[in-house]
C-alpha cells in the first residue's frame, strides 16, 4: 500500500501513521457533548468497504490527510489534505445557514 500525498507524491506506508475514522470532533459546548464524545472516541466507523480515514505524514510533510480507502482490498481512491476537507465542510455548513 502506498499513499499519494498531495504535497510529497506517492510514498511508502511506513512514512504514515494512522488515526482511523475521519469524523469531525464534536462541539464540546453542545448539549449532547458527552454522548457525542463517547461516540467520537469509542464508536468509530469499522466498515468493510470504502472508508474515509485520517493519516498523518509523520516522516514527510507532517500534513494530516483524509484518505478514502477500501478496507476489503486496500485500494485507495482519493487522498486530500485534511485542511482542504475541513475548509470544504465549513463552506458547506456556511451555505446551509
Amino acid at each position: 500500500m502506498r499513499i499519494n500525498c498531495p504535497h510529497c507524491g506517492e510514498r511508502s506506508l511506513d512514512e504514515f501513521s494512522y488515526l482511523g475514522d475521519a469524523v469531525v470532533r464534536p462541539d464540546p459546548a453542545s448539549p449532547n457533548a458527552q454522548d457525542a464524545f463517547y461516540a467520537y472516541g469509542y464508536e468509530r466507523a469499522n466498515v468493510a468497504g470504502p472508508m474515509q480515514e485520517l493519516w498523518y505524514h509523520a516522516a514527510g510533510c507532517h500534513a494530516w490527510l483524509v484518505v478514502t480507502r477500501d478496507t476489503r482490498t486496500h485500494e485507495i481512491s482519493e487522498v486530500k489534505s485534511a485542511q482542504e476537507v475541513a475548509l470544504a465542510r465549513q463552506k458547506v455548513a456556511g451555505t446551509a445557514q
Binding site: 500500500m1 511508502s12 506506508l13 511506513d14 501513521s17 494512522y18 482511523g20 475514522d21 469499522n46 466498515v47 468493510a48 472508508m51 480515514e53 478496507t71 476489503r72 482490498t73 486496500h74
Partner: peptide
C-alpha cells in the same frame, strides 16, 4: 499493521519490521 482492514493480508513495512 495498524489500519482498519478486512483483507486477510498485510503490507510490507510490517513484514520488514
Amino acid at each position: 499493521d495498524g489500519y482498519n482492514t478486512y483483507a486477510q493480508r498485510g503490507n510490507l513495512p510490517v513484514v520488514e519490521d
